[in-house]
């Protein structure tokens, strides 16, 4: 059972991925982890699961106060902020 999520479908670009959903999942070690779903420019969907520290860093890099704030953001942009920390 995972937390309820916000789903938003932005108009996809040709060569970039946007966050369409973010939810909490159980990590194998019992920690809550962040799973981000991405829609790519070609319409494909993928997901990325982040450990707690990286998940919080992503929220901060994205300027998001909560999970909902990640939705609709460009993946390359928020992760650039992550690597630059």
């Amino acid at each position: 059972m995972t937390a309820a999520v916000a789903h938003v479908e932005p108009a996809p670009g040709l060569d970039d991925a946007f966050v369409v959903a973010a939810e909490i999942v159980a990590g194998h070690d019992g920690a809550a982890e962040l799973m981000v779903r991405l829609r790519h420019g070609n319409g494909a969907l993928s997901s990325v699961t982040l450990d707690p520290e990286t998940g919080f860093d992503l929220l901060r890099a994205a300027g998001a106060s909560s999970l909902d704030g990640l939705v609709g953001q460009r993946w390359s942009q928020i992760t650039r902020g992550l690597w630059e920390r």
Binding site: I24, A26, A31, P52, S66
Partner: peptide
Amino acid sequence: ISFSLLRPSLFFSR
């Protein structure tokens, strides 16, 4: 999922 408030947990990330 387990946590305490001693460490930040993504459980509250909404």
